[in-house]
Amino acid sequence: MAKINADKNKVLIYNPTFLKYVYDVWLERHGKYPSTGFLTLMFAIHVCDEVNVFGFGAAKDGTWQHYWEKNKFTKWEPTGLHAGDYESVIMKLLACKNKMKLFEGR
């Protein structure tokens, strides 16, 4: 789009087949579709030699927020359209199998 100011050399577009693969295989069709964070994590697991995950998941009260939104009304219900609870289970499983390091907050 003409109004988007971005360096086209720094943009990555997922093939829709990868999104379907993550949803079908990794999430076993939990939720309506994977979160962008989980898609990014799965991409990293497939292409990186080492994956470290910081600050990913719900807050202590079970709500989810985008880190870039500073609005007090942006808190979501636990999981919402994404199977956040199931995504978390998969992440912890991958960490237990030493496929990634998960650094959970307090």
Rank of each mutant, 00 (worst) to 15 (best):
F43E: 10
A59Y: 13
D24C: 03
F56C: 01
E28Q: 11
G57I: 03
P16F: 04
L19Y: 07
F43K: 13
W68Y: 14
V51E: 06
F43Q: 10
P16V: 00
Y33H: 07
F56Y: 14
N52G: 01
K72M: 07
D49N: 14
L81W: 10
A44W: 02
L27K: 04
S35E: 03
A58N: 07
V51S: 06
V51D: 06
F54C: 03
E28L: 03
V51A: 04
E50F: 04
G84M: 11
D85W: 10
H82M: 02
G31K: 02
L41M: 11
Q65Y: 10
G37I: 01
A44N: 05
D61Q: 01
K70Y: 11
T63H: 11
T40I: 04
L41Y: 14
K32G: 00
E50W: 03
K75L: 10
F54M: 02
H82Q: 04
F18M: 05
H46A: 10
K20S: 12
P78Y: 08
V53T: 07
N71I: 01
F43Y: 12
T74R: 15
F54P: 09
G57S: 06
H46F: 05
P34E: 02
D49Q: 12
L27S: 02
K32Q: 07
Y33C: 01
D24F: 07
K20M: 10
T79F: 13
N71K: 13
Y23A: 00
I45S: 08
L19N: 11
I45R: 15
A83G: 13
M42Y: 06
H46Y: 07
H82D: 02
N71Y: 08
L19C: 08
E28D: 07
F43M: 09
H82Y: 04
N71C: 11
C48E: 05
W68F: 14
A58F: 10
W64Y: 13
G62N: 05
K60D: 03
A44R: 01
T63A: 04
W26K: 14
T36D: 12
T79G: 09
L81K: 12
P34D: 01
D61L: 00
T74G: 13
Y23F: 15
C48I: 00
F43N: 07
F73G: 05
F73S: 11
P78C: 01
Y33K: 05
Y21P: 09
H30R: 12
E28A: 01
G84A: 05
H30K: 15
T40K: 10
K72D: 14
A59R: 12
E28V: 00
G80H: 10
T40C: 14
I45L: 15
D61H: 03
N52Y: 08
K72V: 04
V51M: 06
D24R: 11
F54N: 09
A83L: 08
